[in-house]
Simulated scan of single mutants.
Amino acid sequence: MAGSDSGGFQAGQSGLVVRVPEAEPAVRAWRDRLDPSARAGVPAHATVLFPFLDKSRIDSGACAAMAEVIGRHRPFEARFEHRGRFPGILYLVPEPDIPFRRLTEAIADRWPQTPPFGGQFDDVVPHLTITQGQDDAVLEEAEANLRSRLPVTARVSSVDLVVHDGTRWQQRASFALR
C-alpha cells in the first residue's frame, strides 16, 4: 500500500491485504522507520488490491461478495527469502507468487472499477514492502541486515479488508480462504 508521511492516505480508502505476521520480527524495525503504511497501522503484508472500494460503498452485500470471491481460493504457504526492488522501494518476494496473483485477479475481475494500484502498472508484482522512498544506500543497508533474518515462511489463510479512518488503517473484516 502506498502513501506518505504527510497524509497521503485518505479517510475512507480501503485495501485488501494478506497479513504476514511471521515476517514481523525480520522487517518491523525497517518498516516502522521507512514505510508510511506501517506508521499508519498496517502490519507486514502482501497487498491483494489497493486502492479498493471507498468505505461508503462497503456494505453487507459487498462483504458477502468479497467472502464469496476470496473463499474460492485455498489456503497456501508462501516463503519470503529473496529481496527485490522497485525505484526507492525494497521488498520481499513471496514464493510462490501465483496464489497472490490469483487473489488479485479474482478481486479485480469482480470489481473492475478498482484496478490494482489504480491501474498504474501493467504487471502487478506480489510483494511485502519493507521501505519506500529511499536511496540506494539505505536499501543496501536494509538488504544486508535482512540476509540473516530470512527466509520466513507464512501460512496464508485469510485476506483482510482494511480501511483508513483519516489517521490510521483499521481492520474492518477478514475473509477466509477455504
Rank of each mutant, 00 (worst) to 15 (best):
M1R: 07
M1W: 01
S4M: 03
S4F: 00
S4N: 01
D5W: 15
G8Y: 06
F9C: 04
S14D: 06
G15R: 06
R19T: 12
A23S: 03
A26P: 10
D32H: 11
L34V: 15
L34I: 04
D35P: 12
S37G: 02
A38V: 11
G41V: 02
V42Q: 12
A44T: 08
H45V: 05
H45G: 01
H45A: 04
V48W: 03
P51G: 00
S56E: 15
R57A: 04
R57T: 06
D59A: 03
S60Q: 10
S60N: 02
G61E: 14
G61W: 07
C63H: 11
A67H: 02
V69W: 11
V69S: 01
I70H: 07
G71P: 12
R72Q: 03
H73Y: 07
F76M: 01
F76L: 03
A78V: 02
E81Y: 12
H82L: 12
P87I: 08
G88W: 10
I89E: 11
L90N: 01
Y91C: 00
P94Y: 06
E95N: 04
P96K: 04
P96C: 06
D97Q: 14
I98W: 08
P99S: 00
F100Q: 07
F100M: 10
R101N: 04
R101I: 14
R102D: 13
R102Q: 13
D109I: 07
D109T: 14
T114R: 07
P115R: 09
F117N: 06
F117I: 01
G118F: 10
G119M: 02
D123C: 02
T131C: 13
Q132I: 11
D135E: 01
D136V: 13
D136H: 11
A137D: 14
L139N: 06
E140G: 05
E140R: 08
A142M: 10
E143Q: 14
E143G: 15
R147G: 00
S148G: 13
S148Y: 00
P151W: 06
T153L: 02
A154H: 04
R155Y: 11
R155G: 08
R155F: 14
S157W: 05
S158F: 10
D160V: 06
V162M: 13
V163P: 06
V163H: 04
D165Y: 00
G166S: 11
T167L: 04
W169A: 01
R172W: 15
R172V: 09
R172T: 13
L177V: 12
L177G: 00
